[in-house]
């Protein structure tokens, strides 16, 4: 399908879409600039933004932003809070559907909206949260000491195991974003992708050499996992509950290469079947 990314004001006369229909990705056309462009051309309709974990919509009437909403499951935000959150999205597909009217209004339009948007944009630019808000927050695996204020502590106590989206989808979006940025920056929190790769059943293959704590899998399997995870990962040997560094190795399809010392430690021998699952 031919996409018309980030082009405004041109009639859309193909694929049966109504005139003014528009779609693209926020990675190429940032949210604030996109809304600004829709406003300046006096458009009416709905701007729909959709990520795997979050959906948002902004309604315009005659170039005025009159309603904004974001939601994920049953949780949601409306109005300026929703605009704040959407301003921070760095990458998400969007679609503008002309002539769709809002169910109700939560924003008054006028200059307040562009001002709010540019304020949010400036704040988001100073934060370094992962671009994928589907990442899950967890306490770091390696211990350390940090000093935190009561507000940061309160947030820290509530966010473990939650996606970034879930945490931000609450009143005080920008404040929460700033706290998360601080916690991540200090190393009090880690943001990792939620890996849902099915476990693989592999046969143990001894690798003779010095060292320990490293598991080898076939290059193809490693590449498949790396593509799915897009983050550094380790390997969990299920049932044995051992977590090991994982490296690719050529020509060992269906095998799990383990160093001699690990074989002894885990009481495994050649040909044993082991279920493994990559873990971030």
């Amino acid at each position: 399908m031919v996409k018309r990314e980030g082009m405004l004001g041109e009639p859309s006369d193909y694929l049966g879409q109504p005139q003014g229909y528009l779609e693209g990705n926020l990675a190429e056309f940032p949210f604030v600039a996109l809304v600004g462009a829709l406003m300046s051309t006096g458009r009416t309709g709905r701007l729909l933004v959709r990520t795997p974990y979050l959906e948002g919509e902004v309604f315009l009437r005659g170039g005025q932003v009159v309603h904004a909403r974001v939601w994920s499951g049953e949780k949601g935000l409306e109005g300026e809070e929703a605009l704040d959150l959407l301003s921070g999205l760095k990458r998400a597909p969007y679609r503008f559907e002309p002539e769709v009217l809002p169910p109700h209004t939560t924003l008054l339009g006028g200059l307040a909206v562009p001002a709010r948007l540019s304020e949010a944009q400036a704040l988001w630019q100073g934060l370094s949260l992962p671009s994928d808000w589907g990442y899950v927050l967890r306490l770091p695996t390696k211990g350390g000491q940090v000093e935190l204020g009561p507000e940061a502590l309160r947030v820290l106590a509530q966010v473990e195991g939650k996606r970034i989206t879930e945490v931000l989808l609450a009143p005080g979006v920008l404040r929460l974003a700033r706290i998360l940025h601080t916690l991540l920056g200090m190393g009090a929190l880690e943001a990792v992708p939620l890996v849902e790769v099915p476990p693989a059943s592999l046969l143990v293959l001894p690798i003779y050499g010095p060292g320990s704590g490293v598991a080898y899998v076939d290059e193809a399997l490693y590449a498949e996992w790396a593509r799915a995870i897009r983050h550094a990962f380790r390997l969990r040997l299920k049932r044995l509950e051992a977590l090991m560094e994982v490296r690719p190795r050529p020509n060992i399809p269906g095998r799990l290469g383990l160093l001699e010392e690990d074989l002894k430690r885990l009481r495994l021998r050649r040909g044993d079947k082991v279920e493994v699952v990559p873990e971030v």
């Binding site: 046969l203 001894p206 003779y208 020509n251 060992i252 399809p253 269906g254 095998r255 021998r269 050649r270 040909g271």
Partner: peptide, 19 residues
Amino acid sequence: RVSFSETLGAIRERTYGFG
């Protein structure tokens, strides 16, 4: 030890090739 492990010890995985 390695010699036996790599051969007779690998008999039970005789049907599993390396592709």
